[in-house]
Design a protein around this nucleic acid. Structure first.
Lengths: 204, 204
DNA sequence: GAAGTAAGTAAGTAACTACTTGCATCACGG
DNA sequence: CCGTGATGCAAGTAGTTACTTACTTACTTC
């Protein structure tokens, strides 16, 4: 791998674990397996390195889509939530650290929020489609329910490690549980009550 | 105020803003209006000061109660959520910072979680009472719904500043909106629809 | 007024941190 | 074979940080 990318990767790891102040150029260089001087020659300064890091991070954050034409809302939303949650969990230390430094370095947290912000809009649009199709009740408070679901994913990714019994068990079924509660809050009927055909795959 | 408490208060503020590494003994001393040497004479070391700080913090975190005999669930839960959310918002920088340092100093975040953990149990018990009274549907997923509501409060307190449009507007009405969605998810009827007699299940 | 105690002041120490400089090494193309 | 550019290495600089030491000041109590 390119030296620049190796340093960026190392910086990401070290930053996630130790924060900006704790992520010393020495540690980053060791983690990247390069000389500390190389780091300065490549990026100029620690601050510049972190700017590059944030840019690189937002550049390659995937955004999970939701189908334009909902067919099986429960399954579709569960898969979507699983993907979003997995992504958040993979980056959980990074998210926590950047949030913890909002006061001193807001840019980092703002970068981190682009993904979730976008995800929230995607989900909102999807649910509005469900409403207009008559699949979801038309008196549901969509923005609030979406905020709650997104917060649940966020909280799960970030806090489950510290307070495991505050979250649904087992971990692997959390997304489907969140989605079912979400659906009920918005008056979305489970598939088997809507369609003439029944479930072939009864999950639980 | 006692010098010890003045230092503890200052430490809390400075820590919330700058994190453990950034909260230098010098800054804390200035903020407390005492000499830096006094700080060391009082607590011995920076680490010991922070231990004392966490202890003091959990010692005086209030826990909002919920009535033993529910009368008006919507009002009661809304008031409770407002209180919990207010408390979280007041400490939002502190919560963020301690969460951001979980990897390096887990104790701080664990202390911060005691409150929410306890709050979650209180809410769960309350909802179970609603269920046994027939006010809430008996097929609702209480633990998951509670997790989602608590996450919503947590997320609101912590992230609203960075992504305001991810949360219900206006800020002041967020608690009541969360509660309404929560109630619907658990099949709790608004007060006016609840007759003295219980009707058959699966209304929606 | 003596004695004790809590606080301030000034100065210093050892370790660490971001960053620089100067020089050696090595791969590669002409 | 020679130059060039990327990298490593050793050393150094200036600033910061936790913590210490030695001394002074002010207030209380006997």
């Amino acid at each position: 791998m390119d030296i620049r990318d190796r340093i960026l990767d190392a910086a990401k790891m070290v930053y996630a674990q130790h924060g900006f102040r704790g992520a010393t150029t020495r540690l980053i260089a060791i983690e990247a397996g390069v000389n500390e001087v190389t780091l300065f020659r490549t990026f100029g300064s620690k601050a510049a390195l972190f700017e590059a890091l944030m840019e690189a991070h937002v550049a390659r954050s995937p955004v999970s889509p939701l189908p334009d034409n909902p067919v099986d809302p429960e399954r579709e939303m569960t898969e979507w939530c699983s993907a979003v949650l997995r992504h958040m969990r993979e980056n959980n230390a990074l998210i926590r650290t950047s949030f913890g430094e909002i006061e001193e370095r807001p840019e980092a947290a703002v970068s981190m929020c682009e993904g979730p912000n976008c995800a929230g809009r995607i989900l909102t649009d999807y649910v509005l489609r469900l409403q207009s199709m008559g699949i979801a009740a038309d008196d549901g408070d969509v923005p609030t329910a979406v905020a709650m679901l997104m917060s649940a994913l966020f909280g799960d990714a970030i806090s489950r490690g510290v307070m495991p019994n505050g979250f649904p068990q087992p971990e692997s079924e959390a997304p489907s549980k969140y989605v079912r509660v979400f659906m009920r809050a918005l008056g979305v009927k489970p598939a088997r009550l809507r369609a003439p055909v029944v479930r072939a795959a009864a999950g639980d």
